[in-house]
Amino acid sequence: MKKRYVFFVNAAYCYAVFRPVQEAIWEEGNEVAWFFTKDTPINLLANEKLLVNEKEVKDFAPDVIFGAGDWIPYYLPGLKVMLFHGLSINKRDSKNNAHFNIRGWYDLYCTHAEHDTNTFSKLAEKHKNFYVIKTGWPKLDPLFNSQTEQTKPKTKQAKILFFASTFSPSITAAPAVADELKSISNLPGWKVIATLHPLMDQDVVEKYLTMQDDSFVFLQPDADLYDAMTQADIMICDTSSIMYEFMFLNKPVITFKTRNPGPFLTDTQKVSDILPTLKALTKDATKQLSEAEQVCKNLHSYKDGKSSQRVLRAVDEVLEQGLGKLKRKPLNLLRKLKLRKRLGYWGF
């Protein structure tokens, strides 16, 4: 019998996490559909199936519902599986890493490396109401699979700078570096590709949109960012975890006032330092890249581009043994009422 899977989407970042899993599901001859919160833009492809409301999800009767955010509709059928929207990196305070918050929604956490697996396993022993299996992160599958293509000679007219930024006003670099990025794109032999977080202030987004021309490309958050990253020679970022994804390509990263400094990147404190740093690193980034390689090993255990397949095997394992060995999740009535209000669903 075919298995049925649903992707629950509550932010634009879910597309890049779920689509590699979708490909693996299709390869195995199973069915998959997408279900969105009402405030999330729907940008599905022609061959992707949409479920428009909770009734359609229940009628579809999924065996599994995947989530990448902090919450998921607990009342819908199917094993609830967390894939995460980022790697296990704390952007603000090492004593309070939100990546490891347990809110009582998920049955299975698919982890990425030894560190996060060990942490979640300890939490599983404490709560006794979810499973933990190390699978790797599906979002990285296309990036690892693209590295074979990278080894083929390519002719480029210009060096490419990739810029990505988080949205929080206290840590975003987007407003401060916008004019400098535009200036770099105007230099002979340079091109800039930029993207911003889905929750970025609209005024900032509008500024980046007006900067577009042949040498400055702005990508929406649901675009194929890995294609842009694969093309790029170097990245500028702030404290967004996407910079760690870029490091898996063995390319240098410059940051602007990052909250996560380290020898694996080159941080700048003044806008005027960006261009000299850019020029220096495009000549020699050997030391930084060596440090970044070790960081990548700690963040993700696999480089084979098959984390999606491991996720499906982990799901099979849990479906086979069932949830009978787990304790019931906390009742959390107030939290559940808030979630239903957020989704506008009061049925059963």
Rank of each mutant, 00 (worst) to 15 (best):
S88G: 09
F18V: 06
D203S: 08
L45N: 09
V21Q: 01
K122H: 13
Q147C: 15
E245M: 09
R313T: 08
K2H: 06
K257F: 14
F100T: 03
V57I: 07
T37D: 07
L333Q: 09
L343I: 08
A173G: 13
L343W: 06
Y106S: 00
T111C: 04
D213P: 01
Q22N: 12
H112T: 10
P188S: 15
Q202I: 12
R259S: 13
K49E: 12
G305P: 01
D107H: 10
P252E: 06
L181E: 01
V132Y: 02
S146G: 13
L209F: 12
P330W: 12
K306F: 10
A174P: 00
K128S: 09
D203N: 14
K80M: 04
L337A: 08
A173M: 08
F66H: 05
N43C: 15
Y226C: 14
G322R: 02
I160V: 15
K55C: 07
A232C: 06
P330G: 10
A113C: 09
D214L: 15
G305L: 02
A285I: 14
Y5G: 05
W346R: 09
F216H: 00
K139Y: 11
T172E: 04
E114F: 15
N298F: 12
L225G: 01
E114V: 15
I242M: 07
D273G: 07
L219H: 11
M243V: 06
K134A: 15
P20K: 01
H197T: 13
S215Q: 14
E245W: 04
V253P: 03
S290V: 08
K257C: 07
L44P: 04
F144H: 14
T255H: 05
K338T: 10
Y208W: 10
L281K: 03
I242R: 02
